[in-house]
Simulated assay, not measured.
Amino acid sequence: MKIEDTRLMVIEGVDLLEHLQTPAVMVARGQVRFANSAAKDLLGAHIVGQDVRIAIRDPKAVAAILSETGGTARISGLSTGGSVWEVDCKVLPGGDRIVSLYDLSERVSVAKSHADFVANASHELRTPLANVIGYVETLMNPKAGGNEELRERFLGTIRHEAQRMQALISDLMSLSRIEAVKHEVPSDSVDMVQLAQEVAGEFRSSATIELVVNAEHAVIAGDKGQLLQVLRNLIDNALKYGKADGTVHLSVEVARTGWVLVMVRDEGEGIAPEHLPRVTERFYRADNSRSRAAGGTGLGLSIVKHIVERHRGRFDIDSRPGAGTTASLMLPLREN
């Protein structure tokens, strides 16, 4: 290939790179000769003219870039502390190199979340299953199985653990269904005042529920089944972790800004500040032993958060040790 043809290819390549949203640089004789706007935003405009070993301070990436045949390398922390990037180097005729940088952070994060989710779900199921198997094997022993008192106690434990697994599987399936439709905006008309009255009525036979509303109606575009699940989960949590025989406070407030605020407050011990940022994570528990004893699966607040986000709303948990916990959600009112 003639030198003029090679130069023309380089010029055309530079013009093409400038229009890419992917960060890309051109390296010649170990120096960065050109960087498109995306690369300058990522690495800084000062990299043009720098030695590539200074512009990209990663031995694996530099080795791939300076290799005679080019190559790829995965590096961490190029943009932010937890970011993951792939550096891909292609060698052009004449020896110049085009280096593209691909942000894999979201893909890696999603893959890690899925792996963690499977591991946590497996662990949560494995523990009660192991208990069930252990107690069943004990009951199969004629000596233990013939003891009526021991038999009743063991069967009660088996039933409890089976119900725990059943609740966990139910929540896992619920979370899966919610995620499957999370991009579909609900369109049915749902009156949050009416819904709150309905749910409060369900619990009043076994608990003290105080309901306060400031309007006759609060109609939103929503999925009634999912919103019922939200209120039931929040009231159930308030009863589990609130003060024994305490009151659960449920309120629905219509604001002039076009939003409806729904709050569920308990009178329990509250949650320590260090736990608050993580309470909506799947399987996260501020108090493992207390949550399991109360029958919690560790998925309730995660389900609530997903449903509220699907309704284009906001969900928040506010709590102080000794002062109870308040769960609040804001949902946009339906326009007339």
Rank of each mutant, 00 (worst) to 15 (best):
L8R: 09
D15W: 11
H19P: 11
Q21C: 05
V25R: 00
V25C: 01
V25L: 06
V25W: 00
V32Y: 03
N36V: 05
A39Y: 08
V48G: 05
G49C: 05
Q50I: 13
D51M: 08
R53K: 07
A55S: 02
A63R: 06
A64T: 05
S67T: 14
E68P: 04
G70P: 08
G70R: 04
G71H: 09
R74H: 12
I75R: 00
S76V: 14
L78R: 00
T80I: 10
T80P: 12
V84R: 02
V87N: 02
C89G: 11
K90E: 13
P93C: 11
G94S: 03
G95D: 04
G95P: 04
V99Q: 00
S100K: 04
S100A: 14
L101P: 00
L101F: 07
S105A: 12
E106C: 13
F117R: 14
N120Y: 10
E124N: 15
E124D: 09
R126A: 07
T127H: 09
P128S: 01
T138V: 11
M140W: 12
M140I: 09
N141G: 08
G146W: 07
G146A: 07
R151C: 04
L155G: 08
M173N: 11
H183A: 08
P186A: 02
S187V: 07
L195Y: 03
S206F: 08
T208I: 11
E216K: 05
I220K: 03
A221H: 12
D236I: 10
Y241L: 02
K243P: 01
G246P: 00
V260F: 08
L261S: 10
E274F: 13
T280M: 09
F283T: 02
Y284T: 14
G295H: 14
G295A: 06
T297M: 06
L299P: 00
S302T: 12
E309H: 07
R310C: 04
R310H: 11
I317A: 03
R320Y: 15
G324E: 02
T326H: 01
S328F: 12
M330D: 15
L333H: 07
E335D: 14
